[in-house]
């Protein structure tokens, strides 16, 4: 993949990711999150992970974001009114995040493998859906079934939580 595509999609992902945090209107945040995830799935595809990229679009921009927008509609959220922000808390939070990023940079800088580019694949034609599915149903069969139980528990939990009277 040409390197300018990497820069474009990384910029789209990070720019709209920042817009999620900076927007005051929750709907604008949710739609920025959709664009950010589209950029992320393009980055997945640039890493030859086509299956994960498609799953990302289907699950996140398809299902999860519709859920978010539906909840925003249901609660009828408006643009936030400006409240007095605690300056110490804002500066402290920004400092913690920046310190965290500086640490990530120093770790990646010390990692020797980080300077190497990606090795070429053995063949350009590969069947990653087949390979991931084979692993999922052989090596990871028990975790796969546990995930099924987890999703069932989540479904039952959501139904119980959204009943009118919580006891």
């Amino acid at each position: 993949m040409p390197s300018f595509l990497f820069w474009i999609f990384a910029a789209v992902m990070l720019g709209f990711g920042a817009a999620v945090v900076l927007n005051r209107n929750p709907i604008a945040s949710a739609l920025s999150l959709v664009i950010s995830f589209l950029g992320l799935s393009a980055l997945f595809m640039s890493l030859d992970a086509f299956f994960i990229g498609i799953i990302q679009i289907l699950v996140y921009t398809g299902a999860v974001m519709v859920l978010f927008l539906f909840i925003i509609m249901l609660l009828d959220l408006r643009t936030e009114t400006r409240r007095k922000m605690n300056v110490v808390a804002v500066v402290g939070g920004a400092m913690v995040a920046l310190a965290f990023f500086a640490q990530i940079c120093s770790v990646v800088g010390q990692l020797g493998a980080a300077q190497q580019s990606f090795p070429p694949l053995a063949s350009p034609k590969m069947d990653d859906v087949h390979s991931v599915g084979l692993l999922l149903f052989s090596n990871y069969n028990v975790p796969f079934q546990i995930i099924g139980v987890l999703v069932l528990v989540a479904t039952v939990g959501v139904v119980v939580l959204s009943k009118r009277e919580l006891r």
């Binding site: 990384a10 940079c105 990646v108």
Partner: peptide, 15 residues
């Protein structure tokens, strides 16, 4: 594009 580019972009998104 090296592995480090992807790791830094991922770290920036996490931040």
């Amino acid at each position: 594009i090296t592995l480090g580019h992807y790791l830094i972009v991922s770290g920036l998104l996490f931040t």
